[in-house]
Design a protein around this nucleic acid. Structure first.
Lengths: 141, 141
DNA sequence: TTAAAATACTAGTAAATAAGTAGGATATTA
DNA sequence: TAATATCCTACTTATTTACTAGTATTTTAA
């Protein structure tokens, strides 16, 4: 059963990735993608792509070269699930017409019911996810 | 901004469709797809496909032949958003591994954190959507 | 009676997206 | 200086989405 369809493997793996990386925050030691690769069974090349959004958001930083890797620089206690899921997603809005960049006017009414509903759902989700932090997720491990 | 990616046009249109159909519950008069087609700008052939899940779930019934169409037979006061969104979705589970039919054992741990998280989110969503009814949506129209 | 208007069912298809692969460049350090 | 990392970008394959199309069946208004 699902509400928004199956979570893509990309999202699934991105989440697994960030959970792995969280280790490095307390260790203060970089984790390399080759380590994660062998633990998670995902190719390094693919992990490189998955990790990028987190780096761009300054949740992690990279250390190049031998014995390098990635270190989480934001406290997992301050990283909300909302933030993570936001980064994992590449699409702008739940409904296209909720997106501010979407200026092509909707074919339908200005006051689209469908739009309102998806907006409502999204708000509820935001509220929920904003209260769960990465640190809590790790504890349940 | 989104949590589960952009809502597909199919879902968007399915929702618009069921809202249109709700009219027929009080009217007790069938609404034809050709009417909805011209109102919503969606082809009849496509609407035929979108409407099927609702029919199978006995939310609406059909009346064939001239002056026929579809009539909603379940009270909109008793149709929750959860039910609707469930029907709109075709995929089994938020995360594949949450699906009971998914017997191919997960590559990963039995106790997958990612799985737990998506499961949590889903439960929260269910609770939220189960409290909103189609009738309320129509009132906000 | 019959033509029009509706649903019912199934197959096919073009476009977009997802999910990765691949290759090479650059940086760092043991 | 060789090994081991990240970085960057292009390409490819498979799947999914969003339809279209055709045909059969049913019903009823004229």
């Amino acid at each position: 059963m699902s509400f928004f369809g199956t979570i893509s493997s990309k999202k699934h793996n991105s989440l697994r990735l960030i959970i792995q990386l969280a280790q490095s925050y307390t260790d203060k030691k970089p984790v390399s993608l080759s380590e994660i690769s062998s633990e998670e069974g995902i190719s390094i090349k693919y992990l490189e792509q998955l990790i990028m959004p987190f780096k761009r958001a300054d949740i992690i930083k990279s250390q190049r070269g031998r014995s390098g890797g990635y270190i989480m620089i934001k406290d997992p206690k301050k990283i909300s699930l909302k933030e993570i899921i936001w980064l994992i997603n590449d699409s702008p809005s739940l409904a296209i017409c909720l997106d501010k960049d979407y200026d092509k006017s909707c074919n339908y009414d200005h006051n689209c019911i469908s739009k309102n509903i998806w907006g409502k759902i999204q708000k509820s989700m935001e509220g929920f996810l904003d209260k769960i932090y990465l640190s809590e997720i790790l504890e349940n491990k």
